[in-house]
């Protein structure tokens, strides 16, 4: 009886969380002309068609570039903050921690709206706006693993290096950074994934010439575009994300 309850909850949860994604992946390989079940046959023609839609092709490319660039910036900013927080106490340290983690809980949707008005007032263009928004939203995802990685690295290592004559910068580059390299890598992958799938804030900030794939797919769906094109593009997105995470795990695995 108890077993039954547990297993059925696991089954329902698995269905609710995994099946929708799985079905999108399956439909993308359909040989049919529209959404059908079961699949009439397998083909990759919808990937080809998705690629031939210029909006989708361009937004995919833009999303990749945006994710790469924004994640580099968020990791750098988060690393600065994490270095300070892990080496210092006090008000400033607490302030950095709070501010770096708040975007995690603050609704991205409202942040997007706020940034839209702010950028309109300041005359910031859409590309730069999106870059800034994605940096703000992904900073917490970099900050947390970096603080953890730094906490595991004893300060005495750095002090040892400095006692041997290394300056602050060279002791960081030669001693501390190699210790946290895996953490930095993980943080970067997190940020990439967050930026690559971000939709809520991006919805407000995207515009002509600065369109990300999720937003493009959303408007495509809203205006009743071809669903299998969406399925193929979604699949490309999911596979790229999972591939990044998988690679990240292989490359940046802790010793």
């Amino acid at each position: 009886m108890r077993r039954m309850v547990l297993y059925s909850a696991v089954g329902i949860s698995a269905f609710l969380t995994l099946v929708p994604i799985f079905l999108v992946l399956v439909q993308a390989f359909s040989a049919g002309e529209m959404l059908t079940f079961p699949l009439p046959g397998l083909s990759v023609k919808w990937f080809v068609r998705a690629y031939t839609v210029p909006e989708i092709r361009e937004s995919f490319l833009f999303s990749v570039i945006l994710a790469v660039v924004s994640s580099v910036f968020s990791v750098m900013l988060a690393l600065c903050g994490a270095l300070y927080v892990s080496r210092n106490g006090g008000v400033l340290s607490r302030l950095v921690t709070i501010l770096a983690l708040v975007p995690l809980v603050f609704p991205a949707f409202i942040l997007g709206l706020a940034l839209l008005f702010f950028f309109k007032a300041g005359g910031v263009n859409a590309k730069l706006g999106l870059l800034i928004a994605h940096i703000v939203i992904s900073i917490p995802y970099a900050f947390r693993p970096l603080v953890e990685a730094l906490k595991e690295t004893p300060l005495s290592l750095e002090e040892a290096a400095q006692s041997l004559g290394a300056g602050p910068l060279s002791s960081f580059v030669l001693v501390t950074f190699p210790q946290i390299a895996a953490g930095v890598g993980t943080a970067w992958v997190f940020c990439f994934v967050v930026s690559f799938s971000e939709l809520s804030a991006t919805l407000f900030l995207a515009g002509p010439g600065a369109m990300t794939l999720p937003v493009e797919l959303f408007s495509y769906l809203e205006f009743q575009g071809d669903q299998l094109v969406v399925a193929a593009a979604s699949t490309a997105q999911v596979l790229l994300t999972l591939g990044m995470v998988f690679l990240g795990n292989r490359v940046f695995r802790r010793r």
Binding site: I21, L23, S197, L199, S200, L217, Q227, V230, S234
Partner: peptide
Amino acid sequence: VSNIVRAFG
């Protein structure tokens, strides 16, 4: 996975 993909599912 992006929310859009999950909703589309």
